[in-house]
Amino acid sequence: MKANAFAFMGGTFDPIHNGHLRTALELQHWLGVDQLCLIPSKTPVHRATPGRTSEQRLEMVKLAVADEPSLCADDREISSEQPSYSFLTLQGLRSELGDQCPIFMIMGMDSYMTLPSWYEWDKFTDYCHIVVVKRPGYDLPAEGEIKEFTDEHKAQNLEQAMALPAGKVLFHELTPLGISATQIRETIAQGLSPRYLFPDGVWQYIQDNRLYGLTN
């Protein structure tokens, strides 16, 4: 990891797929960090509990990034006894990395618009910058908490954020791959091949461990 910046993307990764991986890699290039970390959540707070264990989801992330030095798997939430609150993860990262290291937390526009329902959400920018990945069909509301939060913290550019340890919100537009974990789970459940939606090593792990309803 570049000495003066840390970037990460959290999620359930149930399973991790090429949409996650391509987004992470493009953001790693854009931010200019040596490595971007993927942090699987242990027990997601804002969505239904995954059908796979946290250890299985972590193993799939490890397999997915094994041959890509620009990405890494981070087990801090899964190995923690605390709930998978982003706020607690940010506190831990800031304590570990020191006061001056810029920290970038990446999320999709859909997640960003739900931030007011997250634990201690309005304190996130005390610990990090937020990078919001723009996606088709999601626009900021014209008023409300998230609009006010954005107006207060929006960065002029990446360089401005890089000069600070935390405090800014950046928007970055990517061309997303039309892949979702739900689509993959449904494809497997229907007995169809999900190959090329995620790395072959992840598909092999799923078959070996009979995940997502596989019976043979």
Rank of each mutant, 00 (worst) to 15 (best):
G144N: 00
E77Y: 08
E55F: 09
Q204E: 15
S84C: 03
A181T: 02
H29C: 04
V61E: 15
Y85R: 00
D110M: 05
E148S: 05
W30D: 02
Q190W: 12
Q156K: 09
E81N: 11
Q28F: 06
E145I: 05
M1D: 12
L25R: 15
D74A: 02
P194L: 05
A155Q: 08
E26A: 12
E152G: 02
F171Y: 06
L58V: 06
G178L: 11
M9N: 06
H153I: 02
R185S: 06
L211W: 04
L93I: 05
P165M: 09
F149L: 13
F124S: 03
K168W: 01
T43R: 07
Y196G: 13
Q156I: 10
E26V: 14
T114D: 00
D122W: 03
R210D: 12
D151M: 06
F171T: 02
L27H: 08
M60L: 12
Y119E: 07
E173W: 08
W203P: 01
E159L: 11
E77N: 11
K62F: 09
A66G: 03
T89R: 00
G98H: 07
T12M: 01
T150W: 05
L93Q: 01
D122G: 07
R57I: 12
L90C: 00
A155H: 07
D75Q: 11
M9Y: 10
D122T: 08
P69G: 15
G144Q: 05
M9R: 10
A181D: 06
Q207T: 15
D122I: 04
G32S: 13
E159T: 12
L58E: 09
Y112G: 01
K2I: 13
A142K: 10
S54K: 10
A66K: 15
R22N: 14
K42S: 04
A166R: 10
Y138P: 11
D139N: 10
Y112I: 07
S193R: 09
F171V: 01
I184R: 13
M113R: 14
E96H: 00
Y212S: 06
S86G: 03
H129R: 00
A163L: 01
A155S: 04
R94H: 10
F13W: 00
Q28V: 11
G191M: 15
D110L: 03
Q204W: 12
D74Q: 10
S79M: 09
G201V: 08
V202E: 06
D67F: 06
L63M: 03
L97F: 14
I188F: 04
E145K: 13
C37H: 13
A161Y: 01
E152V: 03
Y196K: 14
P40T: 05
W30S: 07
S180T: 13
H20I: 10
Q82I: 00
N209T: 14
S80N: 05
V65W: 14
D99T: 07
E68C: 13
R185A: 13
P194G: 10
P40W: 08
I78A: 11
P116E: 06
I103E: 11
L58T: 12
M109T: 00
V202W: 13
L71F: 07
G178K: 15
R135Y: 00
F198L: 14
M105T: 07
K123S: 11
L25Q: 15
P165D: 08
D139H: 00
G201M: 07
Y112D: 01
V132A: 01
A161N: 10
F198I: 14
L174M: 14
A73V: 04
E120R: 13
V131R: 01
L58P: 02
